[in-house]
């Protein structure tokens, strides 16, 4: 407890000093509030947006897109990765195409996304799904390929059939890799959601930042950015907790 408190306090030193210097510069009139508003102004704006419900609404809208897009992308990537990881033939068939498509950033799909899906959530979900698809796919393939042969031998010895081998041996054995891919995928989804909200929708944190820019509300822009940071932190912590739970059997660093 004592230790946690000290480490928390130590971690707070740098941000607090930066905030104080920033506040002092803004109050002394060294920079224009449009270029860099004072942190107190940002905090006030953030509080105001929170109380009005706008912030909550936007956060939920963004999170909804992240979740739906991610689920779509991962739900396609997972079975495909399992099949490609375990079948050399399927791997040979699909891998060249995937290697060509993988480097294309999801953002490059924006024009097509609007052409294909119009405006609103669908193009946004599509872009996020693409962003989440590749990391989950690549890691699932790697995970399946790295399953230790001894588990397969033990399973065969116990008379395990093909389906159970997949669901109860290969899938759990590949879980550490898959979860690493999921984590990267969520990170990508989070980047893509902000960009996609700047093009085709009229709510969400990305939209709100862009809107504030048009009115030169710098305090609101920064308040939006900080919200994105907080949401990302929450999402990553949740992911971390899930990771620790699902991999509680894993030896981790001891291995």
């Amino acid at each position: 407890m004592q230790k946690q408190l000290t480490s928390f306090l130590r971690g707070a030193i740098v941000p607090v000093v930066i905030l104080l210097v920033w506040e002092a510069c803004a109050r002394a009139g060294l920079v224009s509030p449009i270029v860099l508003p004072a942190p107190s102004a940002v905090a006030a704006k953030w509080w105001e947006a929170l109380l009005s419900g706008e912030l909550v609404h936007d956060s939920i809208a963004s999170l909804y897109r992240v979740v739906v897009g991610f689920v779509v992308g991962a739900a396609l990537a997972l079975p495909m990765g399992l099949l490609m990881g375990s079948s050399q033939r399927l791997y040979g068939l699909f891998n060249p195409l995937l290697q060509l498509l993988r480097p294309i950033p999801p953002i490059a799909y924006i024009p097509l996304a609007i052409l294909w899906f119009g405006l609103g959530n669908p193009p946004s979900v599509f872009l996020i799904a693409i962003g989440a698809f590749f990391p989950v796919l690549m890691n699932t393939i790697a995970g399946v390929r790295h399953v230790d042969g001894i588990y397969l031998r033990a399973a065969h010895n116990l008379g395990v059939g093909q389906l159970a081998l997949f669901t109860r041996v290969i899938l759990p054995a590949a879980t550490p890799y898959i979860l690493a891919g999921v984590r990267i995928g969520i990170g990508t989804a989070f980047i893509v959601v902000i960009v996609s909200e700047m093009i085709a929708v009229n709510d969400g944190l990305g939209y709100r930042i862009l809107e504030a820019r048009e009115f030169m509300w710098s305090d609101k822009i920064i308040a939006g950015m900080i919200t994105i940071g907080l949401l990302g932190l929450v999402l990553d912590s949740a992911m971390n907790a899930l990771n620790n739970h699902l991999l509680r059997w894993h030896r981790g660093l001891e291995h």
């Binding site: 001894i150 588990y151 033990a154 041996v169």
Partner: peptide, 11 residues
């Protein structure tokens, strides 16, 4: 079969 490496399923 009992393997030297145990081959228990760690999960």
């Amino acid at each position: 079969m009992v393997f030297q490496e145990y081959a228990l399923f760690p999960w």
